[in-house]
Design a protein around this nucleic acid. Structure first.
Lengths: 110, 110
DNA sequence: TACCTTTGTTCATTCAAATGGACACAGCTC
DNA sequence: GAGCTGTGTCCATTTGAATGAACAAAGGTA
């Protein structure tokens, strides 16, 4: 099956935003594209598409680049955890192990 | 050239964290892995590795899934902009168009 | 000004991400 | 308990991301 993808506006915005923040971070640190690419172990071409906000690059690479220029993402909590107001692992273990759906209507007989 | 990659601890942590948040978000919305995968237009296998925090998946897909379960990433600013305390595009245009390095020492002759 | 570094972009090749089918098993539901 | 549903994982195949070289153009520097 063909593999054409579509992305929501929110996603595209987030990608563009992240790309710009990386670009700014790189400039603030006085790094050329080549230098940052080398440090991240990727090619300048890939870094370019990351800064452009392309959806294709691997998330690991993007996060690596982001951290290299000093961006804080989900750094083991802080912001994200405050937002979700509880510890993640705790929440995870309390969760049912699988999502089960009602077989029919639960009780809709009047 | 071979393409083996290494990721910093921060990156791996961020990936794991994001994966867990997605998993929690999915559970809270009562979605099965298959359902969420369908909505995102990806396979259940890929969703699985995303929730595991694998570095390989495309960032566009991960962000799409994240937004589908209600996670806020860089939603055109809010947190991130507060953190960086200024508007991004403004900062971008003020930046020098290219990073130039000093040819030698600027003035180191004593 | 001329020079040279940085960047944006294209392109063919390489290689791993994404797929989908399969299977075992955990864990709800009755 | 039996039965079914959701999940984790494997694997062969497909397809697109990552690469690196190349070139033009923009933009600092002398």
């Amino acid at each position: 099956m063909p593999r054409k993808r579509s992305y929501s506006r929110v996603t595209r915005q987030a990608l563009t935003m992240l790309g710009k923040l990386i670009r700014i971070g790189r400039a603030e640190r006085g790094l050329t594209a080549q230098e940052l690419a080398d440090r991240a172990g990727i090619s300048r071409t890939t870094l370019s598409s990351i800064e452009k906000g392309a959806p294709g690059p691997e998330i690991g690479i993007v996060f690596e680049v982001a951290s290299l220029v000093g961006l804080r993402l989900f750094e083991s909590d802080e912001r994200m955890l405050q937002v979700h107001s509880s510890r993640v692992d705790e929440k995870l273990t309390l969760l049912p192990k699988s999502v089960r759906h009602a077989v029919k209507e639960v009780d809709d007989d009047f």
